[in-house]
């Protein structure tokens, strides 16, 4: 029974994570590039154009994955914050801090690709469409988290305060989404790609979603490694690691 939870305690150890993640990353990047190659081949070359939208439908293969990850990222951040607050696990706070910039980047890309997709589809860069508007507010929530976290001189306070904000935010995300949706139907807006995705677009879309998921994980792990180093710079193992890697570098 106890051994079932060992991975959890190990993840809580910065040293264990730092050492293991160095081994995981090359494999994860390899996996990402395989998925990316396949995904780009399908999304740009194999998949047909849409009979209405033409080739601009290919933007969907970027837009949908990054939009999905922007929301998954926020929920993941809130879960990490809960673990940090409830079990006082420092690694969880570090993870939340690491997810924030990557999630914000995903949200920005969802907005950007949504706008660029909107131009040929709606004839305008911006439409107050329910999903784009929610993404915009999600972007503000990410920026708020990062801004609050960087406004404290004590890291302990920054972690906890930003976590409370993330939890308040995660309660609000569905409320924001549904109120914006309600408001949107009131004003008879348009929406992108409603009514499901046709079968011929599915392979490219699913491979790209998988690729972006792996990319998200990779970037978060990279950011988390930096965050762990920042937080543990006084630790003995960091000094050993810095000395060890110095030997590797020829001068």
């Amino acid at each position: 029974m106890a051994s079932n939870w060992r991975w959890f305690h190990q993840l809580g150890s910065p040293k264990w994570f730092f050492e293991k993640s160095a081994k995981w990353l090359p494999w994860l990047w390899a996996l990402f590039f395989i998925l990316l190659g396949l995904g780009l081949y399908h999304s740009l070359w194999v998949s047909p154009q849409d009979y209405q939208q033409g080739h601009s439908v290919r933007i969907m293969y970027i837009h949908v994955p990054v939009a999905a990850l922007s929301m998954v990222g926020y929920v993941a951040m809130a879960i990490a914050c809960t673990i940090g607050l409830v079990w006082k696990m420092k690694m969880a706070f570090a993870a939340a801090r690491a997810i924030a910039p990557v999630g914000a980047a995903m949200t920005f890309l969802a907005l950007f690709t949504g706008a660029v997709w909107g131009k040929p589809t709606w004839g305008t860069w911006w439409e107050w469409d329910a999903r784009l508007t929610s993404e915009l507010l999600l972007f503000f929530l990410y920026l708020g988290f990062i801004a609050l976290h960087s406004s404290f001189s004590e890291r302990n306070k920054a972690d906890k305060a930003a976590s409370v904000l993330a939890l308040v935010g995660v309660i609000n995300v569905p409320i924001i989404y549904f109120s914006v949706k309600w408001w949107n139907t009131l004003h008879q807006g348009y929406s992108l790609g409603t009514g499901g995705v046709a079968d011929e677009f599915k392979p490219a879309l699913f491979i790209m979603i998988a690729a972006i998921y792996v990319l998200f994980a990779n970037l978060v792990i990279m950011r988390l490694r930096a965050e762990v180093l920042l937080r543990e710079q006084k630790a003995r193992w960091v000094a050993d690691w810095a000395k060890g890697s110095e030997k590797g570098v020829k001068r």
Binding site: Q49, H55, S56, R58, I59, H63, F112, V116, W117, K119
Partner: peptide
């Protein structure tokens, strides 16, 4: 060129 939509698709990617 992607029909008329090359600019938009390549801008996104």
């Amino acid at each position: 060129a992607m029909g008329k939509h090359g600019d938009y698709v390549w801008a996104s990617y």
